[in-house]
């Protein structure tokens, strides 16, 4: 097991072919880590996500200590410079050894009918951006209020754009992208209704004025 996990192209390939159940995501992350392994790894600094917050930087040794003390497990998401995304520790070859050394031993020594049940695939649900909620709520109001849609449409569009940008540039995963997009669409509909109403109303007034002698 330890030989498979160690960094280096040879080891990674061995693992890819030996593990039939490996999925695409972990292959890509393995590939990523293969490139990273060319870098000096002595001073690698890891960040990890726990209780909806980002922690770190910590060294690999610290991660080992945290896993041994039970504060982190194989599903904890981690990141280090050069990685494009946060991924669970069990998908990072460099940390797999640490993660599996504890949980792996347990499941191997105590085979139980519950062992195959995944404990919790995502230990921390991504925290939803409040602005995306605000955006959708304003967007719904914008569609509901007819002529006055623009009044709610403007904040909906503003919050939606800010929220989308925040979600895109954030290092930790944030939820609410769908709501931000829905808020943007409904917000723009509201603004369009207001503009159309003002335009037609102005034409109506102008027509009324010219019609009057």
């Amino acid at each position: 097991m330890a030989a498979i996990i160690h960094l280096g192209t040879q080891g990674v390939e061995t693992e890819v072919f030996s593990n039939a159940a490996i999925n695409l995501k972990s292959i890509s992350s393995l590939h990523l880590s293969t490139n990273l392994s060319m870098l000096p790894t002595a001073m690698t600094e890891w960040f990890y996500g726990k209780d909806n917050a980002q922690h770190g930087p910590v060294s690999e040794q610290d991660i080992h200590t945290l896993v041994s003390s039970g504060q982190l497990d194989a599903n904890t998401i981690v990141w280090r410079e050069g990685m494009t995304d946060w991924i669970p520790m069990k998908d990072v070859p460099a940390l797999q050894a640490i993660a599996s050394s504890i949980s792996g031993n347990l499941t191997q020594t105590q085979p139980s009918p519950y062992a195959s049940t995944p404990s919790q695939p995502y230990p921390m649900a991504p925290h939803t951006d409040g602005l995306s909620i605000a955006s959708l709520v304003c967007g719904i109001l914008a569609v509901m209020t007819c002529y006055f849609g623009g009044l709610f449409g403007l904040p909906a569009v503003l919050c939606g754009h800010i929220s989308l940008k925040k979600i895109k540039t954030s290092e930790t995963p944030i939820g609410g992208r769908g709501m931000a997009i829905a808020g943007l669409i409904t917000g723009y509909i509201g603004i369009a209704m207001t503009i159309a109403a003002i335009g037609l109303f102005a034409i109506g007034i102008a027509g009324g004025l010219t019609a009057a002698p």
Binding site: H127, D129, G130, I133, L136, V137, I140, G175, M179, A182
Partner: peptide
Amino acid sequence: PNIYTSWIWLGG
């Protein structure tokens, strides 16, 4: 931010 987002989707 802790309010269930599914409620808002349900309302929409």
